[in-house]
């Protein structure tokens, strides 16, 4: 009988390490809300995760410093910050060198985010420090996928993991964010687009009606993200429910003076992405001078 070599019917599972820097756990919480979490976890080998059942504890991880296929880093980076007694400077670098793919999970890991505000000089993202590419893993950037967001959407992570599993190349932008997810603006798909079009503004949170750009500092028109395409918890988004976008996927997050729109002589200081000021003002000025009755009424009027 000739020897028949048998191919494994299941290829080896991707070995995943989830390491935390200076974090609030928000991205982990978000990840736990992925509706397909069970299926995803079955399909990977979780070497370490701070909350979920996994192969190694943090102490064992730091002792063994194993190889992996994917290293997910959540939280901001500071060289002296320690996990299980090991400084991040060596811990992150070692694990990064021994992995094939790195994902910076959330805005802190991507750009410094909220935690950078505590110590702007020493805290940064793993590749980027705000807009500068001066993070510790900048020379390994080709291995890194940036999933900025505060938190990042769980489906963005499962997208990246599936693409890695299927060995498919991921098209990225200048910050290594997947174009499939970040080419859109948060503005695209907002339910209030008609109010934006006709310049009918809302001046407080929680209304169904009205655009949030002019009076509430909505960052949607210049923030990259698919929040209004892939909804949160499969039902909604910030702007759909009546709070303005805070621009959490951008390197500039967190900005100062959120929830207000800076104006110069009643004109917004920042234009929607790529729209020339003259063009925007010509349309906005015209739209503002019309009064469209339907758009100025409540959508659902309890009294009729």
């Amino acid at each position: 009988m000739p020897k028949i070599s048998i191919m494994p019917s299941n290829p080896a599972k991707l070995r995943v390490i989830w390491l935390q820097g200076i974090t609030c756990n928000g991205n982990t919480h978000s990840f736990l809300n992925d509706p397909s979490l069970g299926t995803l976890l079955d399909s990977i080998e979780l070497l370490h995760h701070p909350l979920l059942p996994c192969a190694k504890t943090l102490k064992e991880l730091v002792k063994k410093l194993p190889k992996s296929d994917i290293l997910i880093f959540e939280g901001a980076y500071s060289p002296s910050f320690e996990r299980a007694g090991m400084a991040m400077e060596s811990l992150l670098m070692t694990l990064a060198l021994k992995t094939k793919h790195i994902i910076s999970m959330g805005s802190c890991a991507s750009f410094g985010g909220i935690f950078k505000e505590n110590d702007p000089e020493h805290i940064s993202g793993i590749v980027f420090d705000k807009e500068n590419d001066s993070g510790p893993l900048r020379d390994m950037r080709k291995k890194v996928i940036t999933l900025s967001g505060c938190p990042a959407h769980p489906k963005w992570l499962s997208f990246v993991i599936e693409m890695i599993k299927a060995n498919k190349p991921i098209l990225v932008d200048e910050y290594r964010r997947p174009r499939e997810l970040y080419a859109y603006l948060v503005h695209n798909g907002c339910l209030r687009n008609e109010y934006f079009e006709w310049k009918v503004d809302s001046d407080h949170f929680g209304t169904k009606e009205g655009c949030l750009f002019y009076a509430q500092g909505c960052q949607g028109p210049f923030t990259h993200g698919s929040c209004n395409k892939i909804l949160w918890n499969e039902v909604s988004s910030k702007t759909r429910s009546g709070t303005p976008c805070v621009g959490c996927t951008e390197p500039t997050f967190p900005k100062r003076d959120l929830f207000t729109t800076k104006t110069y002589m009643s004109i917004p200081s920042e234009m929607p992405l790529g729209i020339p000021k003259r063009s925007y003002l010509a349309l906005a000025g015209a739209a503002k001078s019309f009064h469209i009755k339907r758009l100025e009424e409540r959508l659902i009027d309890d009294h009729t």
Binding site: Y264, M265, I267
Partner: peptide
């Protein structure tokens, strides 16, 4: 209706005012 027919002129005045305030020479 509204300012639509004089928009070419009003837009330029908006830009004049916006830039004047932005560079600090005019009061907001």
């Amino acid at each position: 209706e509204g300012m639509i027919c004089v928009s070419a002129f009003v837009t330029e005045m908006m830009i004049f005012f916006e830039e004047g305030v932005r560079c600090g020479e005019l009061r907001d």
